[in-house]
Design a binder for these strands. Sequence first.
DNA 1: CATCCTACATAGCATTGCTATGCTATGGAA
DNA 2: TTCCATAGCATAGCAATGCTATGTAGGATG
Lengths: 203, 203
Amino acid sequence: MARTKDPAVRTALIERAGQMLRTREPITLRSLVAGTGVSTMAVYTYFGGMEGVWQALRQEGFTRLAAGLARVTTSADPVRDLAALGAAYVRNALDNPDLYRVMFDATVDLEDAAAADESLLGLVRAVDRARAAGRFDAGVDPADLATQTWIVGHGLASLVATGPLPREALAHGASLLTALFVKAGDDPATCRRSVARGWKTLS
Amino acid sequence: MARTKDPAVRTALIERAGQMLRTREPITLRSLVAGTGVSTMAVYTYFGGMEGVWQALRQEGFTRLAAGLARVTTSADPVRDLAALGAAYVRNALDNPDLYRVMFDATVDLEDAAAADESLLGLVRAVDRARAAGRFDAGVDPADLATQTWIVGHGLASLVATGPLPREALAHGASLLTALFVKAGDDPATCRRSVARGWKTLS
DNA sequence: CATCCTACATAGCATTGCTATGCTATGGAA
DNA sequence: TTCCATAGCATAGCAATGCTATGTAGGATG
């Protein structure tokens, strides 16, 4: 029919935007395309405007988060794995603080919510394994416990990444998750050791 | 020496800014002063620029949060009070979602951190009362437990206010706080009832 | 090969936050 | 009371922002 879009241009632009986010350069229409050889219109061709760029960055953030969670190896101790997933969540937020902020600063739309749910799935499966292994009570709802783990991880990551809490406060994560998993039925002493093993993957 | 600033102008401007935040109007230099009778220069005289306006809004947010927490009545049940403080924190965030976002979207500076610590004090005192009443173990550090309560409240409020979690997810707050307080030494059955009493002040 | 649609560049638009320039009025010193 | 330096304040203009209108060129499709 006519000229086709070059996917490399789109990729290059979001990659450059991510780079600028990391170096804390302000991302503007003109600064984004400066030096790339393409003109400002490319942003409208590939993203429909700057808002589209931000949305693409949000998806990039969720993709990176999913990759970080997927990198957690499942072991014979599902409670350790659960803590390791929480640690990976926090680590991802601290490794890409600006990207993490972009992910949650605007009201997330349905497309973003789908990506977030995708990430939650790994947590739900880990809870399922723990329940199957007899570590958690049969009455525990995997989705509920996964959500609560998310709440803890997000609260901790958010407060540390934006400044109110110092990095030493990350240790609270282990306490919170232990409390959560013991309430779910795990043996306190065993749980403490499992969570410690999973959480220490953070540092 | 010369003319003095009129505090009423500053107050009127931040009040108007707060109103615009609530009605989701974009807050720009010109739109902020439109209709107030003062010119754009007033923003620079009283706030030093738009960034000063945002900082003032953040402080306004912390002030409102402190007021919300102070409104929580202390009862004979310190664990109930602790849960009620957590509920008040979440309620404040949901009542003023945009103001709450402004409070935490930028990297908080030292002045904001002081306001945040001020709010934490109420939590620390409640933990102290609970420990004095024998509900918590003697080894519990009030500052630590207060911080963990904050992490839960912030994580919950943040995820519900920005959209990823529905309002029904607020019920997770009671579960999380119960887990936390039981781990601190409270009797499970008693704790569940205390937290339920405090948390139900949310709705 | 011819055609038409689409990517793309250039230029210009309104709006943004901010600053330079005067003017005015007001509080402290004589 | 008189005077004037100084801070408040308004107007106008600056560069930079996101976006749109317009014209061109290039490639896929018949």
